[in-house]
Computed example of a mutant assay.
Amino acid sequence: MDKSLYIAMTGASATLRAQAQVSHNLANTDTVGFQATLNGTVAAPVAGAGLASRVATMARDMGVSSAPGSITNTGNALDVALHGDRWLAVQDSSGGVAYTRAGNLKLNQNGLLTTASGLPVLDQSGAPMSIPPNDALDIAGDGTVSIVPQGQPASTMASVGRLQVVAANTRDLVRGEDGLMHAAPGATAPPPAAGTVLTSGVLEGSNVDGTGMLVSMIQLARQFEMQVRVLHSGDESARSANTLLSSR
C-alpha cells in the first residue's frame, strides 16, 4: 500500500511542476521570440540502502520547443526575425554571452543596440554594438548594419558592423534562469552563422500554442485530482486496517 502512496505523491508533485511550466508558457503567449518549455515525467528508482524495489515519478525538463513562431510584418528597421536554428548573441546581466530569438531591438540614448529588455547586442568581435547618430539604418540579411550618417545624403550609406548571429540546434542549448539560451555546460560556443541569417522589418512571435496549453492545464488539473484521490484512498485503507488490528 505504501508503494502506491509514494507513487501518487511523487506523481502529484511532478504534476504541480508541469502546471507551473504550462502557466509560464501561457504567460508568454505574446512574448516576441519566446519558445515554449517542454516537460515530461520519468520513472526514477529510489536510491538508498536495501533492494532497488521502489520507483518514484520525477518531473523532467525536456528543453524548449524549436517550432517557429508566427511572423508579423512591422516595417521597423530595428525589427529582425532570425531564420531556423539561428540565434542572436547578447550580453547577459553577468557579462557573459547568451542567445535569443527576440528580434525587437532598440537603440538606447548612448547609441548602443540592445534587446527590448536592455541587454547589449554583440557584434562579430563580441563587443556591444554601437550605432553612430544617423538619418537611416538598415540591417541586411547577413546581419550587416549600415547607416546614413546624420546630415549626409542617402548615397553615403556605409556599414558600421555586423550582428553576431550563431548557428545552433535548440536541443544543444539550455535555457537559463534569466530566460535566455546558453551553451550547455562544458560545450563550446556555437559557431558563427554564414549567409542569410535573418529578415529585417518583421518579428517572430511566441511559438506557444495557447489553445494547446489551456487543454494541457485542464488535463493536468484532472490528473492531480486523481493522484490526490489515490492518496486519500490509501490513507482510508490504512486507517481501516489499523482499526481491524486494534479491535483484536
Rank of each mutant, 00 (worst) to 15 (best):
G179R: 10
A189D: 09
S159H: 07
D142M: 11
V166I: 15
D178P: 00
P192Y: 13
V165C: 11
R175K: 15
Q152D: 01
D135Y: 03
S159D: 11
E177N: 04
T156G: 00
R175C: 01
T156V: 02
I147F: 04
P153S: 08
A167E: 11
T144W: 01
D172V: 09
V145Y: 02
G161M: 13
T170M: 03
S159A: 15
D172M: 06
A193V: 09
N134I: 08
T144E: 06
S146A: 14
Q150N: 10
M157F: 00
G161R: 03
L180A: 11
P133R: 14
T170V: 06
G179C: 09
L173W: 04
A167Y: 02
P185Y: 14
M181L: 13
Q152N: 07
P133D: 07
A183C: 03
D135C: 02
P133S: 07
V174P: 00
P191D: 10
D138Q: 13
L173R: 14
P191V: 14
A168H: 02
V165W: 05
P185T: 15
G176A: 10
A193T: 10
E177Q: 13
R171N: 10
M157N: 01
L163F: 08
A154K: 08
P192E: 12
Q164E: 12
Q164P: 00
S155D: 10
G141L: 09
P190R: 12
A194V: 14
